[in-house]
């Protein structure tokens, strides 16, 4: 329990005293609101956009289309932003998306060692582990060991390509379509493409029930 009474703002309807960082954030917010640089509606809109509209379901849709449509896949590998726009996904002007394709003998994985760059227009905001020192420090140095912590063991004959996103180019992994998904609809396929598959710390898996069918 915090006993920090240094601030004199009235944070009404707050069940407990805010943490120091929360108090600082809310104090800055109120200054920016007073200066007309921000409204609380804008905060709500931005939060809601990341909570509901932008997330891994967008990337999954892109992957599923690439799996069923070879020509689309080529366009995606050639020009990421243009190809995702074809599916109605907006991509910020002037920025680049590069999709890297997993193959039988190459596995791709993305990291940002210097900060936490992430392909948010197609995957939403990154999970905490992606932004954490263990992932950032180790993925470039010992990718196979880190992947094992995600329960992904790669045989020695599969080369690991780590993409350290140091510029404003964003990378996304195009995983391999698993065996046993022949005849699946795009929607079914998108259902097995998780965020982790598109970061490269997992491979798409067929749920036990569909495999049994």
């Amino acid at each position: 329990m915090s006993h920090d009474h240094d601030h004199d703002h009235d944070h009404d309807h707050h069940p407990e005293a805010p943490s120091p960082v929360e108090a600082r954030a809310l104090a800055l917010e109120s200054l920016l609101v007073e200066k007309g640089l921000l409204t609380s509606e804008e905060v709500d809109r931005i939060v809601s956009m990341y909570e509901h509209d932008i997330g891994p379901m967008l990337g999954a849709k892109v992957v599923a289309r690439a799996w069923v449509d070879e020509a689309y896949k080529q366009r995606l590998l050639e020009d990421g932003p243009a190809a995702v726009k074809e599916l109605g996904i907006s991509y910020p002007a002037g920025t680049q998306l590069v999709v890297v394709e997993n193959k039988q003998d190459v596995h791709n994985v993305i990291v940002c060692t210097l900060c936490s760059c992430y392909p948010w227009p197609v995957l939403g905001l990154p999970p905490t582990w992606y932004k954490s020192p263990p992932y950032r420090s180790r993925m470039v140095r010992e990718p196979r060991t880190v992947l094992e912590e995600f329960n992904l063991t790669l045989p020695d004959e599969v080369a690991v390509n780590v993409w350290d996103s140091s510029s404003d180019v964003r990378y996304m992994v195009l995983p391999q379509r698993p065996q046993g998904t022949e005849g699946w609809t795009e929607e079914q396929l998108a259902g097995i493409v998780t965020r982790d598959c598109m970061i490269g710390v997992a491979r798409p898996r067929i749920p036990a029930e569909s495999a049994a069918r």
């Binding site: 060692t113 210097l114 999970p127 905490t128 582990w129 954490s132 020192p133 263990p134 992932y135 950032r136 420090s137 180790r138 470039v140 140095r141 880190v146 912590e149 995600f150 350290d164």
Partner: peptide
């Protein structure tokens, strides 16, 4: 941070 040691396992 690339290549630094000592941060432990990835906490998922």
């Amino acid at each position: 941070m690339g290549g630094m040691h000592g941060f432990g396992p990835v906490d998922i």
